[in-house]
């Protein structure tokens, strides 16, 4: 099932939480939803899952509008809300049974599904405990288990890996990737490496507007502009090297990173690369090139550029 969001707008009093945003999520795609606090991520997710009404615009899931309650789209969505609310006084098994039966799993299959989810989310040792007795990470696993119990075609996860330990984060990311092969997944997060590790596409939203939309590579390319190389050249005089580098006809500027270690940063002209020229220069002058690192723009920088203003 795919999701189409068309010109979605939501205001809370004088504040516009979501401002005229449109995007699609295809089946078998994991979409990372990024943005600073209060950007409108959770509000959008709440509208997709049908918790709050749509003010303007529309959301179509599998071609059907969420505004029509008779479509009963909620059965196809698994949702992990922000802060992972749970019934703390219920044992894990009972809770999963409750969630499963609310989503319409029949009594024959429910035990099988609960066992599967307990296995997948690593809850076997805790399954008879009350949720209130579990640590934060285990509660998060219960939250994920309840979202997936009815094997939904769409998963909406609001910060799914908060509170998990590093091993568990890797497992959950792998799980999301696997799920994302056949299902439609939207996840929001503040952890940028997580997006790179799990998402096919990134959507950055700021102040209710989409500011970037694309794969991590395309975003990086867009933000990067000119090629930047970090060089270390030994067996030569630093100033001479600097001067020679500047004379290369593909180089825009050269700066010292550390003069005493002969470390330079070279920026090429737009859409040009200087790697070969630098190598040839070193060969010619008998300098030893010990380091040549292309400087990639980090996702953090893209995020900061787009959302700080």
């Amino acid at each position: 099932m795919d999701i189409q969001i068309e010109k979605l707008t939501k205001t809370y009093g004088p504040q516009t939480a979501v401002n005229d945003i449109s995007f699609d999520v295809k089946t078998g795609e994991v979409l990372g939803f990024l943005g600073p606090n209060g950007a409108g991520k959770s509000t959008t997710m709440k509208m997709i899952t049908g918790y709050i009404g749509i003010e303007k615009g529309d959301i179509h899931i599998g071609g059907k509008s969420v505004t029509n309650p008779s479509n009963d789209l909620k059965k196809h969505i698994g949702y992990l809300p922000e802060n992972n609310p749970l019934y703390l006084d219920m044992p894990v098994m009972d809770y999963l049974e409750f969630c499963g039966s609310l989503q319409g799993i029949d009594t024959l299959n429910i035990d099988k599904r609960i066992r599967e989810m307990i296995g997948v989310c690593g809850l076997n040792r805790e399954k008879h405990k009350k949720i209130g007795e579990l640590s934060k990470g285990y509660r998060q696993r219960v939250g994920l288990a309840q979202a997936m119990i009815h094997d939904p075609e769409i998963l909406v996860l609001d910060e799914p890996t908060t509170g998990l330990d590093p091993n568990q984060i890797i497992e959950i990311r792998k799980l999301i990737r696997d799920l994302g092969k056949e299902k439609t997944v939207i996840l929001s997060t503040h952890i940028l490496p997580e997006v790179e590790a799990t998402c096919d596409r990134i959507l950055i939203i700021n102040k209710g507007k989409i500011v970037a939309n694309g794969t991590p590579e395309t975003l990086r390319k867009q933000a990067q502009g000119n090629e930047v190389l970090k060089l270390r050249i030994e067996d030569g005089d630093a100033d001479l090297i600097l001067k020679s580098l500047k004379e290369l006809n593909t180089v825009q500027s050269v700066e010292y990173v550390q003069q005493n270690q002969n470390l330079f940063e070279v920026q090429s002209l737009a859409e040009q690369t200087s790697k070969r020229h630098i190598f040839n220069l070193c060969v010619q002058k008998k300098w030893v090139l010990t380091e040549l690192t292309p400087m990639e723009t980090k996702l953090e920088d893209i995020f900061r550029n787009l959302t700080v203003n």
């Binding site: 049908g50 909620k74 809300p81 019934y87 703390l88």
Partner: peptide, 14 residues
């Protein structure tokens, strides 16, 4: 208060 209302109403519950 605990937010479980959101959990319930995003399931197949009117």
């Amino acid at each position: 208060k605990t937010g479980t209302l959101e959990l319930l109403l995003t399931k197949s519950v009117t």
